[in-house]
Simulated assay, not measured.
Amino acid sequence: MTSVLIVDDQHLIRTGVAAILRTSPDFSAVTEAADGEEAVAMATEHRPDVILMDIRLPGCSGIDAAERILALSLTPQPRIIILTTFDVDEYVYEALRVGASGFLLKHSSPERLLAAISLIASGDMLFDPSVTRRLIEAYVPRQCGPSPRTAAVLEQLTAREVEVLRLVGRGLTNDEIAVALVVSEATVKSHLHRAMTKLALRSRAQAVVLAYEAGLMGQVPRQTGQVEAVG
Rank of each mutant, 00 (worst) to 15 (best):
L12H: 13
L12D: 14
L12R: 13
I13T: 15
R14M: 09
R14L: 12
T15G: 03
T15L: 14
G16T: 10
G16V: 07
A18G: 15
A18F: 06
A19T: 07
I20L: 13
I20M: 11
L21C: 08
L21H: 07
R22T: 14
R22S: 13
S24P: 09
P25H: 09
P25S: 12
P25A: 08
D26L: 14
A29C: 11
T31S: 12
T31R: 11
E32L: 13
E32W: 02
A33K: 03
D35N: 14
G36L: 13
E37F: 10
E38K: 11
E38T: 12
A39F: 03
A39S: 07
V40F: 08
V40E: 03
M42A: 15
M42R: 14
M42I: 08
A43M: 11
T44K: 14
E45F: 05
R47G: 02
P48D: 03
D49I: 03
V50W: 01
V50D: 01
I51K: 01
L52K: 06
L52D: 06
M53Q: 08
M53K: 08
D54P: 05
D54C: 02
I55F: 03
R56P: 00
L57K: 09
P58G: 06
P58S: 05
G59P: 04
G59A: 07
S61H: 04
S61C: 05
G62D: 01
G62W: 01
I63D: 09
D64F: 01
A66P: 05
E67W: 00
R68W: 10
R68K: 15
R68T: 11
I69T: 10
I69W: 09
L70V: 09
L70G: 09
A71S: 14
A71K: 11
A71V: 00
S73M: 10
T75E: 13
Q77I: 01
P78H: 00
P78R: 01
P78W: 01
R79D: 03
R79P: 01
I80F: 00
I81Q: 02
I82M: 14
I82L: 12
L83W: 11
T85S: 13
T85N: 12
T85I: 13
F86M: 07
F86P: 00
D87G: 08
D87H: 06
D87E: 10
V88K: 12
V88E: 15
D89Y: 00
E90G: 02
V92T: 10
Y93E: 09
Y93C: 06
Y93D: 06
E94K: 15
E94Q: 15
E94P: 03
E94S: 11
E94N: 14
A95W: 09
L96T: 06
R97M: 09
V98K: 02
V98F: 02
V98S: 02
G99T: 05
G99Q: 04
S101H: 10
S101P: 00
G102E: 05
L104Q: 06
L104K: 04
L104M: 11
K106H: 04
H107F: 08
S108Y: 01
P110T: 00
P110M: 00
R112V: 13
L113S: 05
L113C: 10
L114V: 15
L114G: 02
A115P: 04
A115K: 14
A116G: 08
A116H: 05
L119T: 15
S122I: 05
